[in-house]
Design a protein around this nucleic acid. Structure first.
Lengths: 220, 220
DNA sequence: TATAATCCGTTGTTTTTCCAACATACTTTT
DNA sequence: AAAAGTATGTTGGAAAAACAACGGATTATA
């Protein structure tokens, strides 16, 4: 257990919580460690969620099946990230599955205990709640930004919306993006090749310069 | 002040908090009441947010301007709803404005105070945090669902994804939707008339029946 | 009840995207 | 350095969406 804590002590969820407090926290939040083999199911669609997960080791993917049975990958969970927290707090049955991409270890924490500090109002509770609110709010802002991009009608507008948002975040007209072309196309909800063609057009029109992950927005 | 509390005492944020505790809560969370005339700006883009709002009376709209200056309405805030909470917790400058659609009254609450209970660990803090986590998590789930719809490539698929999700939520093949056609088109990010045409097709193909706000998914 | 305003479906045209197939450049492996 | 694999850009035809314009139905208003 101590070993697991070592791996996640500098996660966002546990930010600014003293190492000494971590093990008492585990008891308070009914921490449970579980191991999964590659390919195993960590959480399944429709199963009630009372605890949320903090990945200590490995890699998970959150997948969803639509009304036709088509599979789509919602996100990849890396170590130190939490998952399923939204469903733990809305008391709604999840519509997605979580699968282990490689052998993985997850620390499950009781969502109820986290938001209802114990009698003695342990000092770390305050910080935990703050961190959790930050994480969920942040996801919220990110989802809203994605929607802002996707809501545009043309690929060109989607691209420019995405790039201007990045430009603001990186505080520069020159930006580096985290996605490859396929990843960016998936993020924007468009076809990769069509997007590439659109990028070329923007370059020809003198609106944009780019090379691999580097982009530069030219002023009009 | 007492008068304002009366109007919001059964809001989701204040759910399961005793009326007697409300006024002490106000002090603890540095509650501030502000009035706005129709058309006035409640929050403006780029202004640091330390408090989030709870609308006690009136109607607000959250608007955003894209890189071309086009205005889009992100959401309408009705009484008892909170707003700007995500930005209050991520310490990020908001990229949207909040405007009063009619004369409105807002109760601002200190986001820091809410997540950091005072020494005596007032009982209502626990419940407030729980309620806030519920609200934000819920928004999260809703945004994810919207993205699930918008990510589909065709209007037909967007419609069917939306309707299946509603069908699950309403636990029936017969559903009532909250949007009019223009509202649904905006939600899905498509053109109203094209969407109408697509609905007609689905009806002809025997996949769907509908009339105004009533829809029925027919089994294949 | 007449009138205006709004909502919704239809149609035809233009624009954009999707899709498949392929070419080129870059990376990794052997 | 050759070979294989991967990522990106290009093209052309088919499909879909956007757009504009209009007509009928419903609702709100005078």
């Amino acid at each position: 257990m101590i070993n697991e804590l070592e791996k996640i002590k500098d996660s966002v969820l546990l930010q600014d919580i003293k190492v000494e407090e971590l093990s008492s926290m585990l008891g308070c939040l009914r921490g449970v460690i579980k191991h999964y083999k590659k390919g195993e199911e960590v959480l399944s669609e429709g199963a009630e969620i009372k605890k949320f997960g903090l990945l200590t080791e490995g890699k998970l993917q959150i997948v969803q099946y639509d009304y036709l049975g088509n599979k789509s990958i919602l996100s990849i969970i890396e170590p130190k990230q939490i998952f399923a927290e939204a469903y733990a707090y809305v008391n709604k049955l999840p519509s997605m599955n979580v699968e282990a991409l490689v052998d993985s270890t997850v620390l499950f924490l009781d969502s109820d205990k986290l938001s209802s500090p114990c009698q003695n109002c342990c000092s770390f509770h305050k910080q935990l709640v703050k961190n959790l609110l930050f994480i969920i709010s942040n996801k919220n802002v990110n989802l809203t930004e994605k929607i802002e991009c996707m809501a545009k009608r043309t690929t060109k507008e989607k691209l420019l919306t995405f790039l201007s948002l990045e430009s603001i975040k990186q505080n520069s007209k020159e930006i580096y993006i985290q996605y490859d072309r396929q990843g960016l196309a998936d993020y924007l909800g468009v076809e990769r090749s069509a997007m590439s063609a659109e990028l070329s057009k923007l370059k020809n029109e003198g609106i944009l310069e780019y090379n691999k992950n580097w982009f530069k927005l030219l002023q009009k």
